[in-house]
Simulated scan of single mutants.
Amino acid sequence: MSTPRPSESRVDVTFPPAWDPGREIVLDPGSPEPLYFQVSRQLHAAIEDGRLPAGARLANEVELAANLRLSRPTIRQAIQALVNQGLLVRRRGVGTQVVRTKVARPLRLSSLFDDLTGLGGTPSSEVLDNRVEPAADGVPDLLETPGLTHVRRLTRIRSVDGEPLAVMNNYLPNGVIDPTDEELRERGLYQLLRSAGVRLHAAEQNIGARLATDEDAELLDEEPGAALLTMQRTTYDDTGRVVEYGWHVYRASRYTFNLSLTDGPH
């Protein structure tokens, strides 16, 4: 005698007109899979295959709960799971939106601007600082140049396709390059260094994480306390001179680092 299959409840969910309202979510109350996970899984699939494109806005939790005949906490749990994965973002005054796929950047001696261009994105920069200033305590040590008196300070917000991705901070020994704001908006730092005849050779880099401060949140369009990736990099030319020290923060919801590992000697 065959075991009867659990009854399946099929619910059609109509999304806002800009989303093409023919989409639907299928729920199976008899499945061992929790209902919130069924909703989350199917929304995830729709985001991954492009049925829910970047920038699309979800109906609010009350509407989704009513359309799916689920409780609001169940819908909230489903949405939060996708927020935690970086696929959805909650914005004040806007609602819950689909975000773009994360930028996966290989670790190599290149600038973020160049990598974003190579990945097919349209990078842009807002220049917040581009000035020569007295070297503060500790900065000559970062640049490994004892006696250094002045440095160039750069601060930029790097965006891709109009969405903020990172805040980039750099110190350079004064005189290495003298870029205009326009050059910093249109080109990557390493491209500018190479154009000035600097032969980049190697870099030391540390990657970490922290939570967004109020200032970070404002600059990156994130919520305070959101996860951020951090990077510190010291770059050397072919003579062993430090040509830049950078400390940057990236939105963890939009950005990853890729590392290639090989088996070395034992």
Rank of each mutant, 00 (worst) to 15 (best):
R152L: 00
V139F: 05
H150T: 11
V176P: 00
G118C: 08
G138R: 07
E186Q: 15
L116R: 15
L119I: 14
S110R: 14
P134C: 02
P179H: 01
E133K: 02
S110M: 09
P123V: 05
E133F: 03
D181A: 14
L165S: 03
T155S: 06
S111T: 02
N169G: 08
S111Q: 03
T122V: 15
L154H: 01
V127D: 03
L128W: 03
D114I: 09
D115K: 11
T117I: 13
E186I: 11
S124T: 13
D178I: 09
E182L: 10
L142V: 04
G118E: 12
R152Q: 00
D129P: 08
E183M: 14
D114T: 04
L143H: 02
P123N: 07
V160Q: 10
L112M: 15
L154V: 02
S110V: 15
N174E: 10
A136N: 10
V127Q: 09
N130W: 09
G120K: 03
P173R: 00
P140T: 08
P140I: 14
Y171M: 04
G118S: 14
P164K: 10
A135T: 04
P134E: 07
G138K: 04
M168S: 11
V160L: 08
L142I: 05
L128K: 12
T122Q: 06
G120R: 06
T149V: 06
V160E: 06
D178T: 06
E186Y: 14
D137W: 08
S125M: 08
A104M: 07
M168Y: 07
D178N: 06
N130M: 08
S159Q: 14
P164G: 05
D114N: 07
E182R: 08
A136E: 06
A135G: 03
G147N: 11
P146F: 09
